[in-house]
Design a protein around this nucleic acid. Structure first.
Lengths: 344, 344
DNA sequence: TATATTTACGCAATCGGTTGCGCGACAGAT
DNA sequence: ATCTGTCGCGCAACCGATTGCGTAAATATA
């Protein structure tokens, strides 16, 4: 039952209506210089004949596709996949495609991916930076060619682009303050690469909370620089708890490491939260599954994705806009068993 | 520092070498009718000038892109995002893009997405069916137009396409047999929509295991038909444990529901695995986090994605191949605390 | 009525590769 | 010396939509 019916084009419509292809092209996008009834006639016939616009042809002519590129570290991380889910939903509603590319947190990969995406003539780019990345020249190609770039979550100030973020400083402050209010005196902090601003800011929020409560900042309790994965989380916790004067709380910059901290504690008979309170970040699904349930900071992943997509689409509409805005979303402190020492 | 240098094209190369564009085009892809030294000269100059092939132009001419579409239920599910990770990696190595589209397990969405992807002129399609889907006409458009379609995991036999699967029957048999060997006598089964073959086959494997051990199949212990999400898992477990003669084991067709089963048990003081053994499916990250750790069947998600991508790419190479193969990957039974009643 | 505007549409070039067909040149066969 | 074949490459027509510029007709203005 193969029926390779040739696709119908604006030329077919044009000749059937005895007008020129240009008129059809314009009519289909409600161009101001086309008459009302002509527009109707064209659209009607297009509908009847089952016309499907050929985006490729348009892309070639305009030298720009209606595809949005998304560069992330790993797609199979709860925060990332949720964010992409939001991007996809929003882009899909606007008739745009989404193409994914993983940096695996490697700077080299990120550069290679940027080149590949540029070669694919994407019409916009959403980026959450690789952990390693410190230089950002690989994005200037896009900016120089008026391809909107929007950073999400793992952003940089070195580029003049839109950003969609949360207030990491405030979140770190809030989380740490909560630990202090629960009576913790020696609070450790697990963080990521400090050139990645989200981690630096969370760490600064953490320090600010200590300062406000006149708690001395002990550098030996701040472990940072790695990938903050489960192995590292476990080892860092092991190290901390082997200290002569171990901490009574750990604030981890992500849930993955926080979960490892809890597991280390359980393996070693350390009571949570009495002996060690643990606070995470991201509100990953595991935070609700682990026992004790993990207190954490909720990260509006899906919304961040949606908003980032909207920003890209907005720039595509009005190419004249040069202003680059930073949109900051709200986070929530989610208090669960792993930090709840006092009765409320 | 805006430097919108015009992209260099095969025409630029052609005129610089005083040959025709067709020669350049052919030389760049090692066409047999082009001389050895011409090919070298063209490639050399292309490299020097920084030539980047314009895929859009090629796509327009060939009416087919080098983009692979991926239709899945939800991207933010561990199995799915891992699979996509595999697809992306493999496609990226072959210079192909990957575009994602989520059905949210809805039949309507799946149809709409299929249309959208077709309109995007994708060069190949990888599908993991929505839970709801029972009819498959929306894929015939691709097949009729020689666009390779490969199904992964949630497949159908109604279409003559490549499939990448695991042996769900064997896995169900293996998992249930393990429960029986652990001394379980009344084993319940949580399953999904029975028109989705993966669930049906797991259920059949479950039943076969019972038969082989002369255990009567009790229909009231087989709950199926839903989405198998956490709420359902919790409710189903509640229902089962309220039965006059409750089960002493639950084999869930996914980890999500299995985790809910464990949580219900914990909330209600039901000892795991002594009073209730729980077996999951997928080896999601949570299975290792929950306490007790969840026994499960590992699903080679990343590999399934990679292989599916390779199949699509293979069909793109040799369009003459019509054979449709089914590739079955290995699963492993992962025994953890939630089912380990006997000392080994 | 003549001129200025506006309205509504057509012309034709363009985006960058791809590919069927053809043709000249040169080598080997007869 | 003629014929046949192969090799290496060019011609030109696509693929389908976009868009700057031009223009005829309709309407408004002087």
């Amino acid at each position: 039952m193969k029926q390779k019916k040739r696709e119908i084009t604006i030329y077919d419509i044009a000749s059937e209506l005895n007008v020129s292809p240009s008129t059809v092209s314009r009519a289909l996008k409600d161009h101001y210089s086309i008459g009302k009834e002509m527009i109707e006639a064209v659209k009607k016939l297009a509908r009847e004949r089952g016309y499907r616009p050929n985006h490729i042809a348009a892309s070639l002519r305009k030298n720009k596709t209606n595809t949005i590129g998304v560069m992330i570290s790993w797609i199979n991380r709860p925060f990332v996949s949720s964010m992409i889910s939001g991007i996809e939903e929003e882009a899909s509603n606007a008739g745009c495609n989404v193409i994914i590319s993983q940096s695996h947190d490697s700077y080299e990969h990120e550069i290679a991916n940027a080149r590949a995406l540029y070669n694919s003539r994407i019409g916009g780019l959403i980026v959450s930076l690789a952990m390693e990345t410190r230089k950002y020249n690989h994005f200037s190609t896009f900016l120089d060619n008026d391809i909107p770039v929007v950073f999400v979550d793992r952003v940089t100030d070195d580029l003049n682009c839109d950003k969609v973020v949360i207030d990491n400083f405030a979140a770190g402050l809030m989380a740490t303050t909560h630990l202090i209010e629960q009576g913790c005196k020696r609070i450790a902090h697990l963080s990521g690469a400090q050139h990645r601003s989200i981690y630096k800011q969370r760490a600064e929020g953490y320090m600010e909370a200590l300062r406000r409560h006149n708690i001395e900042i002990d550098e030996s309790l701040i472990l940072s620089g790695g990938m903050l994965n489960s192995e590292e989380g476990y080892r860092m916790t092991e190290h901390l708890m082997s200290l002569p004067n171990p901490p009574d709380a750990i604030f981890s910059a992500n849930d993955t490491a926080a979960v490892s901290a809890i597991q280390y504690a359980k393996h070693n008979g350390i009571k949570i939260p009495q002996k060690l309170a643990v606070m995470g970040f991201n509100n990953d699904p595991v935070s609700l599954i682990i026992d004790p349930t993990l207190s954490t900071v909720s990260h509006p992943a899906v919304d961040m994705g949606k908003i980032a997509a909207r920003q890209v689409l907005k720039h595509r509409e009005h190419k004249d806009i040069i202003t680059s805005e930073t949109i900051t979303l709200k986070t929530d402190l989610i208090i669960r068993e792993s930090t709840l020492r006092k009765k409320r």
